[in-house]
Nucleic acid binder design. Structure first.
Length: 266
DNA sequence: ACGTAGTCCTGACGGC
DNA sequence: TGCCGTCAGGACTACG
């Protein structure tokens, strides 16, 4: 579910509501959340009785910076979402929560693909270039496009560019007018330029509209994202393209469905 | 080094 | 109504 724009929307919401809050308790109801890398007692020791001094994001990871210098990273997987509440509400699929002096941060996750852990530095997260970060520079981007792997899979590879998921990969390629099955190293200079520019454009526009809701995604105030109304190709197979009236097609690439307009995209 | 398929989970939807 | 297959915003592993 949550790709970069959704995680960023959540980050902004948390900043508004929980910046400076004191964490009293962390509880994990689903032990799978840490993938066996840390036990609950250790997590508690590292996290409890700390202030939330900053909220960050790294690709699709949400980062909670603690006053003891540790960072709690939280990946929402496919269906993770947060809600802030005065009490522990027994919301469905509640998998973890933080009790703070500014309220409870409840985490629910239907499919249990979410993951969290405590790190000392963001270097510990495997990650590529964040398209909204300082390292997103043309030369760095260009250097990555050397393989013949299809461009759609390249965009989804978090170790190259981090934050793009299946929805935005399709939307970006449509806007950049590039077919999803083109080998990455076959792009012309002009196409690379277009792609380089389009990636942050689409992501920023989506953040402006507080992300995309297909079914599960909600921001921390339980509001759906409004970028769903602006999608041009994702989930639009069989419908006419906005731009040219051609019919949107759907194919599988790297095991993921990919929607595109074969007239607009070359 | 690459692509692909299987795996982890749970729920929704369509076809018969 | 019920059963079954397929699919879903992600990402890891194993295999060829």
């Amino acid at each position: 579910m949550p790709e970069l724009p959704e995680v960023e929307t959540i980050r902004l919401g948390l900043e508004e509501r929980l910046l400076g809050a004191l964490i009293k308790t962390i509880d994990l109801r689903d032990q799978k959340l840490t993938r066996g890398q840390v036990d609950l007692l250790t997590i508690k020791k590292l996290v409890e009785n700390n202030y939330l001094v900053k909220f960050g994001r790294c690709g699709k990871n949400l980062l909670l910076f603690l006053s003891n210098g540790n960072i709690l990273f939280w990946h929402l997987g496919m269906t993770g979402s947060f809600k802030i509440s005065e009490n522990i509400e027994e919301i469905p699929y509640l998998r973890a929560y933080l009790e703070t002096d500014k309220g409870y941060l409840l985490y629910s996750d239907i499919r249990r693909f979410g993951k969290l852990g405590v790190i000392k530095s963001t270097n510990e997260l495997k990650k590529g270039i964040d398209p909204l970060g300082d390292n997103y520079l043309y030369d760095n981007f260009n250097k990555l496009l050397t393989s013949n792997k299809v461009i759609k899979s390249f965009l989804l590879d978090q170790e190259k560019i981090s934050g793009i998921g299946n929805i935005y990969a399709d939307e970006i390629l449509w806007k950049a007018k590039i077919l999803p099955n083109r080998p990455a190293n076959s792009l012309s200079t002009e196409e690379i330029n277009r792609l380089f520019k389009t990636i942050p454009e689409v992501l920023k526009e989506a953040i402006k509209h507080r992300g995309t809701t297909i079914s599960d995604y909600r921001d921390i105030n339980s509001n759906p994202g409004e970028y769903s109304e602006r999608l041009k190709v994702y989930g639009k197979e069989g419908k006419p393209c906005n731009e040219c009236q051609g019919i949107i097609k759907k194919i599988k690439l790297g095991g993921r469905s990919s929607c595109f307009c074969s007239d607009c995209q070359k």
